[in-house]
Amino acid sequence: MTEASRTALVTGSAGFIGFHLAKRLLDQGYRVIGLDALTDYYDVALKERRHAILGNNPGFKPIIARTEDDELLTAIFSEERPETVVHLAAQAGVRHSIEVPRTYVKSNLLGTAELLEAARAVPPRHLLMASTSSVYGANTEMPYRETMRTDHQMSFYAATKKANEAMAHSYSHLFGIPITMFRFFTVYGPWGRPDMALFKFVKAILEDRPIDIYNHGRMKRDFTYVEDLVEGLVRLIDTPPVMGAPLEGDSLSPVAPWRVLNIGHGAPEVLEDFVTAIETALGRKAKRNYMDMQPGDVPATWADTALLTQLTGPLPRTALAEGVAQFVAWYRSYYNIPG
């Protein structure tokens, strides 16, 4: 089957990662059904602009709705019969989940359950679902491997994502749906979310305001450039899990065509180096406001990507300075700020 004849359903298509993935699939000739609720967790205009860009391609079909709408999801699966489904829609934000946990129950738990039910009725060839590096929680051994136990989440957001992994495994086991779960590691890049550190830091520095640096700068993150991550997702579409064929160090379930994968850069960066890269790209210094660790945060993340490499081959690894510069260039262009 050619890519031009393939249909993919991308939930969260107006979101940061969903937008980049949908754009790549459209560029490769896919027909893309983009489902997004355009919620107001952050600037709706930014989400609408992403969808407008996708809409320039005649292969894009936007649907503005929530994944909790079971009748709509059933109709989409039965009418469109997507061969590939990438479920990225979720209520994001570690700290926000402490303030409004019910939103996470509705979007991350109920929304995912309804999507699994729709996939049960009309199974796709491959269902790919977003999890998060936050599920590793209190683990201190690094790098994080997919086969590690993940029993001690540090935020309600992470807990809902761990629940998604378990829910997906049960459906994969019971109904034979091939499912790959992705644990994303601190994704950044152009069109990024305003609630994330890169966006907030750039905005604050340009406005000559101090930036809040948690844990007094003693933080490390496995920063992953969005286009590198999307490359991994695209390569994995045609690699659905198959029972009975585990690789070395595989997370493949013994009772289901289900696998969990890290997608990260594979090297942690010190937060201070991240800030320095922003300063370099902007050509100005940041005013630092050092603070204690925030509830729900972890001091470091680091992805073991050996399993991913076995499945996809080596992925691009954009250097932090280059990725940050790409974001700053986009930010200046989007908000008409001279460089």
Rank of each mutant, 00 (worst) to 15 (best):
K161P: 00
N215C: 13
F185W: 05
M129D: 04
I64F: 00
H126T: 12
E68C: 13
P268H: 09
W302I: 04
R259Y: 06
L116T: 01
N336C: 08
V100G: 00
L206G: 05
N289P: 08
M243I: 15
H126L: 12
Y104R: 04
S333G: 11
A118Y: 03
S133R: 00
G12A: 03
F199G: 06
Y334G: 00
M167L: 14
D70L: 05
D40K: 04
G296Q: 03
A277Q: 00
P254E: 09
V328A: 07
A204Y: 08
I205K: 05
S78K: 08
A303E: 02
D208A: 14
N139F: 02
F201N: 11
R50F: 02
G339D: 04
I177G: 05
E227M: 04
A300N: 10
N164I: 11
T112K: 00
V202R: 11
E68S: 15
S131W: 02
S133Y: 06
V234W: 05
T276Y: 09
Y171G: 00
D36A: 12
R125I: 02
L46V: 12
V270Y: 10
A37H: 13
T103L: 10
K287C: 05
A281E: 06
L73F: 02
G34Q: 03
F185I: 05
P316F: 09
R235I: 06
H96G: 03
Y335H: 15
A306Q: 13
L308K: 10
Y42A: 01
E83Y: 09
S13K: 06
L25C: 11
V85H: 03
K287D: 13
Y214V: 11
P82L: 09
L174K: 08
G93M: 04
G266H: 06
I237C: 06
S253V: 03
P82K: 09
K200T: 08
E3N: 13
W302H: 13
L206I: 06
V324C: 03
L38K: 04
V275D: 05
M293H: 07
K106D: 11
N164P: 00
R183I: 10
L320Y: 10
F16V: 05
V86R: 07
G176C: 09
H152T: 04
D212F: 12
I33K: 09
V270F: 06
P62M: 08
V226K: 05
F182I: 15
F156L: 05
K47V: 01
P254T: 02
E3Y: 10
K23E: 15
Y331L: 11
D304A: 09
D43F: 02
H265G: 00
E231Q: 10
A281T: 01
W191F: 10
E207M: 12
V230E: 02
L320H: 09
V226P: 03
V202A: 12
G111T: 08
E227P: 01
V242F: 02
I211P: 07
F184H: 12
E165L: 13
T103N: 11
L54N: 02
G12F: 01
E165Y: 10
M293W: 05
A14G: 15
I53L: 14
H173G: 00
G217K: 10
T160Y: 10
N108H: 07
A90S: 14
T140S: 14
L21V: 04
S5T: 14
G137S: 05
